[in-house]
Design a protein around this nucleic acid. Structure first.
Lengths: 297, 297
DNA sequence: TAAAAATACTCCATAGGTATTTTAT
DNA sequence: ATAAAATACCTATGGAGTATTTTTA
């Protein structure tokens, strides 16, 4: 049995007339009769009751017609859906994001994506460590990662990475801190401050970046607290537990009791977008397009 | 596009290998590749991502596969359903019944039909007048009628009628009635009794039958009450409002205060089954078969 | 008898087969 | 180098066309 048989049956059932149905199908009447008989033969049921004056449906034909309608519609719908998915207008895409972009870039991106690609089911996972995102990309639990540069770029041959933008640093200080009155702070000014950093050497790229800045300024940082989440980090600063060096967009996360001051340094921290190199999905391409527009704006 | 394409796609998606899929489909690999390409071309989407080592599904292919599974299953289910309906094992059938068989034959028939044809959705309408059943048969609101012989059998050329059985008459009497002590009652004994009959000359066959019996016995019946339903009729008798001549199976409707005594007459009243002459449905045939077995038992 | 479906036959489009090439690992 | 899909080409089944017959209201 083929869809042809179902289409022909539907036409005959609609027209209740082999001749008219054949005309509608742009074919001659005899082959139409044959195909319908073939269908009935295959099913082992008479679907139509023929008289020379009119054709009508048997009870079995009535029931079959309903099913056939649904099937033919489902065939069309399946094709249409596949097309939309192929064009990246529909589907699922999971996006990972480091903590320091979770409260600035990610919400704006989510809004833009929902507006631009309303048919797509996006899943956002913020506060992810760079190293976890690499794993998640590889195992498919995310499809796009917003992360910081990791030391071993060589180990990411299967990933495509691109620098989205280079972010300045700011210092997060408790409200009444002695440095809070300065308009700009040098790294060296933090020599005697207790620092709050993201936890785990080799896991958080920010940890390594902050330690690197201090060493470049000629001192070994005093690490007072290690925290997993950026929101916790700023909260700790507000609570007076120490100061922190964070990328500038973190200052968009406003917490009472914490203030941000520019860090006087030429150093910048890259925000990188990474994807699986073999991921050729149209949805990913469209998502990257929206992401880049977002960065420019 | 044809079901063939869907079947082939499903096989390739299952096997993730054109060669093995072709073997499973009992065909060579090249035509399979062609058909899949043809499908992709028609949809305008790549469903498969080919490497020489393995075949895997694109996101569009994944979604399409799910739909294809459902479609192919629906095609099978539609055929199976049509077959069952064609064999009379599934479907809908409405049965009408005159009042005087509603409380005896009909419940037993319903039980037998449910047991024999569990897949069928039977609808029973009891207490229908013969004339209403003829109309209902013609307009399709019932498919099988249990009725009494009507005067104008000539007017039913489009119906097939068959006498199911010939029922004796009984007299329904109030409990303490003077005739209640008799074992048998002649029609002439009812000369001075007020009768309760089914309402409407020309509508209820029983009305005509009862009046006919009386005239044959040489008197014009005194009609005390006309009622629409058999249950009402017996209730009226029990209440002492009169006596009634009813077919013997009505005595199965036991109402406190009413008794039934055989009527001494050779006259019988036919119980007739009628169907549309052009109704060739297998379900009707099966139903009639169960009905006839029921009558014998 | 007239309208419509079924039959008889013919033809050709295309599904499917065989042989070979291309491709990616 | 090799396994597998794609390409090229061929064959033949069967879908569709034309002419005609059969059917039944």
């Amino acid at each position: 049995m083929e869809l042809r048989h179902l289409r022909y049956f539907q036409a005959v059932a609609d027209e209740k007339h082999f001749g008219r149905a054949a005309a509608r199908l742009h074919m001659a009447q005899p082959p139409l009769s044959q195909q319908i008989r073939q269908l009935e033969g295959e099913l082992g049921v008479d679907l139509l009751h023929r008289t020379t004056r009119r054709v009508d449906l048997t009870p079995a034909g009535e029931a079959y017609l309903v099913r056939v309608h649904a099937i033919l519609q489902a065939v069309d719908a399946a094709g249409a859906e596949a097309q939309r998915i192929g064009q990246g207008l529909e589907g699922r895409l999971a996006i990972g994001c480091v903590g320091s972009a979770t409260y600035s870039l990610l919400p704006a991106l989510a809004r833009a994506l929902r507006a631009q690609l309303p048919g797509v089911d996006f899943a956002f996972r913020g506060e992810m460590l760079t190293s976890d995102q690499v794993v998640a990309l590889r195992d498919g639990s995310i499809d796009l990662a917003l992360l910081r540069p990791s030391g071993d770029a060589a180990g990411h041959a299967d990933l495509t990475e691109q620098v989205l933008r280079q972010e300045k640093y700011v210092v997060a200080l408790p409200d009444g801190h002695r440095l809070a009155t300065r308009s700009r702070i040098r790294v060296a000014d933090l020599r005697d401050e207790g620092l709050i950093v993201h936890s785990g050497h080799g896991k958080s790229a920010m940890y390594d970046a902050v330690v690197g800045l201090c060493r470049e300024a000629g001192f070994e940082p005093v690490i007072r607290h290690e925290v997993a989440e950026t929101s916790t980090l700023v909260t700790f600063v507000a609570a007076g537990l120490g100061v922190a060096i964070v990328p500038e967009p973190v200052s968009e996360l406003v917490v009472a009791g914490a203030v941000h001051r520019p860090l006087a340094t030429r150093a910048r921290i890259d925000l990188v977008v990474a994807t699986r190199a073999d991921d050729r999905s149209a949805l990913l391409a469209r998502t990257l397009c929206v992401l880049r527009k977002q960065i420019v704006a």
